[in-house]
Amino acid sequence: IRCIGVSNRDFVEGMSGGTWVDVVLEHGGCVTVMAQDKPTVDIELVTTTVSNMAEVRSYCYEASISDMASDSRCPTQGEAYLDKQSDTQYVCKRTLVDRGWGNGCGLFGKGSLVTCAKFTCSKKMTGKSIQPENLEYRIMLSVHGSQHSGMIVNDTGYETDENRAKVEVTPNSPRAEATLGGFGSLGLDCEPRTGLDFSDLYYLTMNNKHWLVHKEWFHDIPLPWHAGADTGTPHWNNKEALVEFKDAHAKRQTVVVLGSQEGAVHTALAGALEAEMDGAKGKLFSGHLKCRLKMDKLRLKGVSYSLCTAAFTFTKVPAETLHGTVTVEVQYAGTDGPCKIPVQMAVDMQTLTPVGRLITANPVITESTENSKMMLELDPPFGDSYIVIGVGDKKITHHWHRSGSTIGKAFEATVRGAKRMAVLGDTAWDFGSVGGVFNSLGKGIHQIFGAAFKSLFGGMSWFSQILIGTLLVWLGLNTKNGSISLTCLALGGVMIFLSTAVSA
């Protein structure tokens, strides 16, 4: 259960009878995928790494000078000259100064003066180019299975845990398959586009800190620079940016070097996208990844198990997540596992009318040892309800109150669905055939309105939902006002479609 501690969480529900669903994975976010007769899966884009970055340009932001020398000439005696002028490691300046009897010249006039100092770069920052084909995306998957609280967001041991898996995709191999043991396998067909235009970005490294910066900004930095990788004795261009020549006297000129420019660069980098280094690879934390999940090989585990009949206890007080759902960790005293956990939410304890829904599909106890633990997640209705676990006299209950409203949740879900469709863009549509167009249209309606429909009408039977949709269509056909007619027709059509397409 990876997503319960992530604030940016998206719930995606598969269409009834569908074998695939489109998701948008982004750094700092987590996606929970639910479908009829399929286990619930949490998917998170953990890291995006980039390798084989080529150094484009380096800037010196802290330097020192040494070996200063000057040469001067009297008027009419030609130009002052130093051998160091031809050495690229030196920074030199030529000027004219007033000369006369007082400073060793027989004539009054302008004399030539040249001053040089050896330039040494102490600290530099480097910009590297990123090729999209060198990106690698690491995705962690977790099935809502027989897990306890100690396994949440624990990325170790996934090789031997059938509840978890790690997959890596690249532009050259965008397809992967996550093996989930008894739950089958989940196929991923990803489109490795981060949403960032790397043709316009460089990877900047300064003092063990890293950013993504725009090329134009990078090339306009007014500091000494050299092109390409460091060859040991780089040729620094624009050395004068960190060196200041003071007022010249008759035979000498003082040279000083400016202080470190790291603070000024940090100020200019305010708002830039931060990154990290992992050995020789860069780690990015921006952008998104679009994936199509193929769920035809994914299956529920323990459908044929019998119900657990022994007593359950709450190991922890049920807690609310950031998303309005409830996490419950229970301990089973029996030894008759594997068995299914009898769990439901009810409005009252007399009729036990089921409300809400299970995020953890078909929760089971897989071990036959005593005191096995299991964590599950529920989506309670707004208002008061009861969490009921167990059967008969051994069942345990917990009162729950959820604040908020169904309308607010439906609106929030619609906005999130619209954002998801905007990110998917043209990849969500198939114009290759008439059937493809209608299929894409259905998927689009489901992406945007599916979660809201589930919130508003999830407790009704599909037949009642179709009746309401048919009534809206009838009202649309018999209303003389054009805008009201079109609105009723659209709402009725969407409702009829979703009542037959969205899983219960």
Rank of each mutant, 00 (worst) to 15 (best):
I1W: 08
D10T: 01
E13D: 00
W20M: 08
V23W: 07
E26H: 03
G28Q: 05
M34W: 08
Q36T: 13
D37C: 03
D42E: 09
I43Y: 05
T48K: 05
V50L: 07
V50A: 15
N52C: 05
M53R: 02
S64H: 15
S66V: 14
C74D: 10
Q77N: 13
E79T: 11
S86Y: 08
D87T: 02
T88A: 12
K93C: 12
L96S: 08
V97R: 01
R99D: 08
G106K: 00
L107Y: 06
K110W: 11
S112W: 06
A117D: 02
K118M: 10
C121E: 07
C121D: 04
K123W: 10
K128G: 00
N134K: 09
E136Q: 01
Y137L: 01
L141P: 13
L141A: 04
G145W: 11
S149L: 11
S149R: 03
G150V: 00
M151W: 05
M151S: 14
D161T: 13
R164W: 04
A165H: 10
V169K: 08
S173A: 15
A178W: 09
L180F: 01
G181A: 13
G182D: 13
G184R: 11
L186R: 01
L186Y: 03
G187K: 11
E191C: 10
R193F: 10
G195L: 06
Y203G: 04
T205G: 14
N207H: 14
H214N: 12
E216I: 05
H219T: 06
H219M: 09
I221F: 10
H226R: 04
K239M: 11
K239V: 03
E240M: 15
V243K: 06
E244F: 08
E244M: 15
K246D: 08
D247C: 07
A248S: 11
A248D: 03
Q253L: 02
V257N: 09
G259L: 03
G259I: 06
G263L: 05
A264Q: 11
H266E: 13
L273Y: 13
L273T: 14
E274M: 14
A280M: 02
G282H: 10
F285V: 12
K290G: 05
K290Q: 07
R292M: 03
K294G: 03
M295G: 02
K297P: 00
K297L: 00
L300F: 02
L300Y: 04
G302R: 01
Y305K: 03
L307G: 11
T309P: 09
T309F: 07
A310F: 00
P318G: 02
G324I: 07
T325K: 10
T327R: 01
V330A: 13
A333P: 05
T335I: 13
V343L: 09
D348A: 01
D348N: 14
D348T: 14
Q350C: 00
T351W: 02
T351D: 00
L352P: 14
I365L: 12
E377T: 03
E377W: 06
P381A: 03
P381I: 03
F382L: 12
G383V: 00
Y386W: 05
I387F: 15
G390H: 06
V391M: 14
H398P: 00
R402T: 08
S403G: 01
G408V: 00
G408I: 05
F411M: 11
A413P: 00
T414E: 03
V415G: 02
V423K: 11
V423Y: 06
G425I: 10
W429Q: 03
G436S: 15
I448K: 09
F449C: 13
A452V: 09
K454E: 12
K454Y: 09
K454W: 13
S455H: 12
S455V: 14
G458W: 11
G459M: 13
G459L: 01
M460G: 03
M460K: 06
S464N: 11
Q465C: 04
I466K: 05
L471E: 12
G476T: 03
L477D: 08
N478C: 10
T479S: 15
T479N: 09
S483E: 13
L486W: 13
C488L: 15
L489G: 02
A490H: 10
S499C: 12
T500S: 15
V502L: 10
A504N: 13
